[in-house]
């Protein structure tokens, strides 16, 4: 797939050799009766099929070189991420109607703004829709935004549930819903951002980022790979923060009526 770079090629035969590594885990599972055999086999096959398919989509996308196709793929990524982030929190149909647009808005804004800034201001991608840059960058951003949205929604719901008495005590003193839920919102936003903050602290010491490693393996100058990795880390931090903040601010309103009343708990 790579044109200008010349890493050692991995033929299909050599890929089969790599698959032997899964057999090691499979043997361990059988020997120790871990019951993971089926999951391992299905997982390995799924991963292969999905990634090969994505590879062909990328080949096709790079060759087609059309801005609207790139935007369509980005849109699809946002849609899948939104669905995944909302799925855990939304139990009923009514909740889904509430949460889906919130998760969608938060992910779209957080990931979209970050991608626009990074490609336009930092990397100067040309043409602006160049799929070789936009698709992988957006993939990383959207995955982080998705996790941030899911964490923020889940944590806010549990904070609002655990602190109903405190929220109502604030309302009874004349607080706005925003004031009454300020502490819950703060905790939910922090919870959603902690993974990004921790990642910044340990990168290069505890973890060697996959993207940087991949670039180096693919033949890139390590100094450039490092700079790219830093751009990625900063960009993921921004995306996480924007997504978490929007998700929390939009979601917390849904816990109150227009008359600043805490809605009753949804029946279990």
């Amino acid at each position: 797939m790579s044109g200008e770079l010349h890493p050692f090629d991995i033929s299909w035969l050599r890929l089969m050799a790599a698959a032997v590594l899964v057999l090691v885990a499979l043997a361990l599972s059988l020997w120790q009766r871990l019951g993971l055999g089926k999951g391992l086999v299905v997982g390995a096959i799924r991963a292969t099929v999905q990634l090969v398919a994505v590879g062909y989509v990328l080949v096709w996308l790079f060759a087609a070189d059309r801005w609207y196709l790139v935007l369509a793929v980005l849109g699809l990524m946002v849609a899948v991420a939104t669905h995944t982030a909302a799925r855990r929190q939304a139990k009923g149909a009514a909740e889904r109607r509430t949460i889906l647009p919130i998760a969608g808005l938060a992910i779209l804004a957080g990931a979209g703004l970050t991608l626009a800034y990074v490609t336009a201001v930092v990397i100067h991608v040309s043409p602006w829709y160049n799929p070789r840059y936009l698709i992988p960058l957006f993939g990383m951003i959207v995955a982080n935004s998705m996790n941030a949205a899911a964490l923020a929604l889940e944590r806010l719901a549990s904070e609002m549930d655990a602190h109903r008495a405190e929220v109502e005590a604030w309302l009874a003193l004349g607080a706005t819903p925003g004031q009454a839920s300020a502490e819950a919102a703060r905790r939910a936003t922090v919870a959603a951002m902690i993974p990004a903050v921790n990642a910044l602290a340990v990168v290069g010491v505890v973890s060697l980022p996959g993207m940087m490693t991949g670039q180096i393996l693919a033949g890139a100058d390590p100094a450039l790979a490092v700079r790219y990795q830093l751009v990625v880390m900063f960009m993921l931090t921004a995306a996480t923060g924007i997504t978490a903040a929007i998700a929390v601010q939009a979601y917390r309103r849904t816990f109150f009526t227009p008359a600043a009343q805490l809605k009753p708990r949804a029946p279990a």
Binding site: A172, T176, A260
Partner: peptide, 16 residues
Amino acid sequence: VRELRRRIGFVFQAPV
């Protein structure tokens, strides 16, 4: 509603 709640205080069963 906020003015109403300032004029009508509420003391809960379990103090928060």
